[in-house]
Every structure is written in C-alpha cells, then in structure tokens.
C-alpha cells in the first residue's frame, strides 16, 4: 500500500530552538513533546499552538506559527494546516474574553437564540465580532458536549451552563 506515514519533519532540525520561546513556554511545550515518540515532535503541535495562542492574547500570527514550526521541526505549511483546521485556534485578534456560545440542537431548542440575542445586545457585538473595547469576542460554536446544561457557553477554559440573562450578567460582571 502506498500509505506514507512518516513524520513530515524538515530535513534539517532547526538550530537555536532556545531563541524561539522563553524558557517557561519551552518547558511547557517540552512536557508535551515528551509524551510522544522522539521522531514525532510534531505530535505536540496542537498543544504548542494552544500554549502560544494563550501567551499571545488568544490568537496566532504567522510569525508565531513559524516559530512553532521551527521548534517542532515541521514545515511551516504543515502548521498552518493544523492551525486553520481546528476551530479553537484563532488566526485573527480576539477580545480578552472569547464567549463561545453553543447554538447546536439541544441548546437551540433550549433558547440559545435568545442567549445570543441577549449577548449581542449586552456586548454590542454580532456573532463573530469583537467588542470595540477589545474586551469580548462573541463566537458561535458547535456542540460542546454539555447538552444537559443547555443553553451554555464557554469562556476561557470554563463552561457555564443553564444560562439565563441574569446568570449571564453575573458571569460577565465577574470577569475582569
């Protein structure tokens, strides 16, 4: 069979990996790299992108993706492919708080439309946009696997379930 399943690593490992990220970030990425076979550094690409994104105010730039590519000895295009495939990566600047509202079936029939409407009005943004003060981005997402708590959204790493306008007010008021 013609299946080619070799790591797509570059022919020459990049030098000066220390110069790419600060030592803390490197240590965190290295923890992920250590989980995989030695020749599969690229297995850590999603984790590395996530860490780098976090350190950059929630989004990735071409320069950062190139650094991840160099750090993992990947072709830059292979990193762009990954970053543009998974929905949690942001390739444009986002607000400080990314409000990810599920609008899939269970949430929809439990009123996610009203939740979106309320958020749009409260934050003065449309789905897919970032508020003028840069504090909030509102993003429509697919099922987050918390249908029992519909309607729900995610901000940062945290799920908020059984949303009501009052609850939303208190959640958003609690954010810096």
């Amino acid at each position: 069979m013609g299946f080619k399943n070799v790591p797509m690593s570059t022919a020459k490992p990049s030098e000066n990996k220390e110069s790419l990220f600060d030592s803390k970030l490197r240590a965190e990425i290295d923890k992920w790299i250590a989980k995989y076979p030695q020749e599969w550094r690229q297995s850590a690409v999603m984790a590395a992108l996530m860490l780098v994104q976090e350190g950059n105010g929630g989004y990735l730039t071409t320069e950062l993706m190139d650094k991840v590519a160099a750090y993992l000895d990947m072709a830059p295009i292979a990193v762009y492919e990954v970053a543009s495939f998974y929905s949690m990566f942001e390739l444009k600047p986002v607000g400080k708080h990314k409000v990810c509202v599920c609008t899939n079936v269970s949430c929809m029939i439990n009123g996610s439309d009203r939740i979106v409407e309320y958020l749009e009005k409260k934050l003065d943004v449309k789905l897919g946009q970032t508020s003028k003060d840069g504090k909030y981005s509102l993003k429509e997402v697919e099922c987050l696997g918390a249908c029992g708590g519909a309607p729900m959204f995610q901000i940062g790493n945290k799920y908020y379930e059984n949303l009501t306008p009052e609850l939303i007010d208190s959640i958003l008021d609690g954010l810096e």
Partner: peptide, 22 residues
C-alpha cells in the same frame, strides 16, 4: 492528548492523524 476543536476527530482514524500532529 488535547484536541483543538474538530468534531471529525471523533472518527478513530482522524483522531490518530490528529495525535500525529496533522
């Protein structure tokens, strides 16, 4: 191994590809 947002990775071979950094 943490995913990054893709329903298709629930398909077993897509999941394997994903662990492989693709």
């Amino acid at each position: 191994h943490l995913g990054a947002g893709a329903y298709i990775c629930g398909e077993e071979t897509a999941l394997l590809e994903s662990i492989e950094g693709k």
